[in-house]
């Protein structure tokens, strides 16, 4: 890819969500740069990812751990396994810098997670920071804001 088109960027965001819904986790892990972070704040408009609590702030090691744990025989909260389902609104391209190969998208989505007889619905917004590396788009940062991030939740087990 020379420079990603608008469609390339939008397709990337859709494809990422589909990997999670399909359980193609190793492919999903490969979408990220080594020093990237997945961040899910706890508070509305939270700016600090280190000195107050977040729901998730995962580097490559923690993302890999979470995925490996899903596969384990003694992962009791995943017996039976959770399934998830994303419904995305068309992503906005908030920022593009072809010279640096850096792009930012903003995506509203609904997320459904189910296990046994339970099913939860969450409304969220994802902000992807993407970088073009060796002709491939990679995620350098993904921020997911839950609409009700300050609500009391039961288990949320998958990546949104």
């Amino acid at each position: 890819m020379a420079f990603p088109t608008r469609d390339d960027l939008i397709d990337f965001v859709y494809e990422e969500a589909r990997m999670l819904d399909d359980g193609r986790f190793d492919e999903w892990l490969d979408l990220w740069t080594p020093d990237s972070f997945y961040w899910m704040p706890l508070d509305y408009n939270q700016q600090d990812d280190r000195h107050v609590t977040s729901l998730l702030h995962e580097d490559a090691f923690m993302r890999k751990l979470r995925i490996e744990r899903f596969k384990g025989e003694r992962t009791f909260s995943q017996k039976p396994k959770t399934r998830c389902h994303h419904v995305l609104q068309r992503p906005f391209i908030d920022h593009r810098d072809d010279e640096k190969g850096e792009y930012t998208t903003h995506t509203s989505f609904h997320y459904v997670e189910t296990r046994l007889d339970d099913q939860i619905l969450l409304a969220a917004t994802a902000r992807h920071e993407l970088k073009l590396i060796d002709g491939r788009l990679k995620i350098t940062h993904k921020r997911v804001d839950l609409l009700n991030s300050d609500a009391a939740f039961g288990n949320i087990q998958m990546f949104l």
Binding site: L55, R69, F76, S77, G154, N155, I156, Q157
Partner: peptide, 14 residues
């Protein structure tokens, strides 16, 4: 301790 915690998930399960 988070609802998104791998450790919390297994405690809650128990």
């Amino acid at each position: 301790n988070a609802p998104t915690s791998m450790v919390g998930h297994d405690d809650l399960e128990m």
